[in-house]
Amino acid sequence: MRATGTFNVKSFVPTDVTPDPAITTALPVGVAKLEKQFEGEITGRSATLFTSAFDQAAGVGTYVAMESFEGALNGRAGTFNFVHCASTDGTTRTDMYFAIVAGSGTGDLAGITGTGDLLIDADGTHRMVFEYELA
């Protein structure tokens, strides 16, 4: 099955985390908490833990995000977790990974497995795609 939708970031809150031991690299590492709101075949919200090594000025870096989703895919309501990451050289997204966490589904989404993608349109619209199966 496939579900697509758009999302908006409702909040992006940088969170102080101090690695131990402290190691300085060419790209600063940061952590943030996000809340997203979804519309389309994907409706609901997610709570996201977001980690990145990123140079804002150059637009170069990599992120890893773990999301807890609550809502519906194609009208089937429940919750589940998914993880995604990508790198950028400032113009192109590469090294993308996206997976639904097996065993994390509840409600009508119990038994969900699969993959997906996060896409950014030229106008800045953020899109989420889930390619999934239900047990």
Rank of each mutant, 00 (worst) to 15 (best):
E131F: 09
N8T: 13
A57E: 05
Y97A: 14
V101A: 15
T51P: 00
S11Y: 00
G107S: 10
T25D: 06
G90Y: 14
M66I: 02
F98S: 12
V129M: 05
R76T: 04
D123W: 12
P21W: 04
A99D: 01
A86Y: 15
V83D: 09
G111M: 02
G111T: 03
L119R: 13
Y97M: 07
F80M: 08
G105I: 02
H126V: 02
G107Q: 07
S87H: 09
L49S: 15
F54G: 00
T24R: 11
A110H: 12
N81M: 06
A86S: 15
G5W: 13
G30K: 08
T94G: 10
R76V: 01
G105S: 11
Q56T: 05
V64E: 10
A57M: 00
L119F: 14
A86W: 14
T51K: 02
I23W: 14
A110P: 06
V31Y: 15
V17W: 08
T24K: 12
H84T: 00
G90W: 09
F7Y: 15
F69S: 05
G59A: 05
G90A: 06
A86F: 13
R45A: 09
A58E: 11
P19M: 08
I112K: 05
G124V: 01
T24D: 11
P19L: 06
G111L: 02
G59E: 07
F82M: 08
F98M: 10
D16P: 01
A32G: 07
M128Q: 12
G90V: 01
D123C: 07
G114Q: 06
H84R: 02
G71T: 02
L49D: 12
V13G: 08
L109S: 02
G40D: 06
T51Q: 08
T15Y: 02
L34Y: 13
S87P: 01
G90C: 06
S104E: 06
L109E: 03
D123L: 03
Q56L: 03
F38I: 04
P19V: 03
T15E: 03
G124D: 03
A53N: 09
N74F: 07
R45P: 00
H84C: 00
D117P: 01
D121V: 00
G30M: 05
P28Q: 10
S11N: 00
A86G: 14
S46Q: 01
R93F: 15
V83P: 00
L119T: 09
K36M: 02
V31R: 15
G114Y: 13
P14A: 09
V101S: 12
G30A: 11
G78I: 01
G30E: 04
D55R: 05
E131W: 08
D95N: 14
V129N: 04
F38T: 07
G114R: 09
G71V: 00
T24W: 10
T6S: 14
A53V: 01
A57S: 02
A122S: 13
A53C: 05
R127G: 05
G75N: 10
G90T: 03
A110R: 11
T113F: 07
E39P: 03
G59W: 12
M66R: 07
R127F: 10
E39K: 15
F54K: 00
V17Y: 13
P28Y: 09
E70N: 09
T106Y: 15
A26S: 14
D20W: 11
A102R: 14
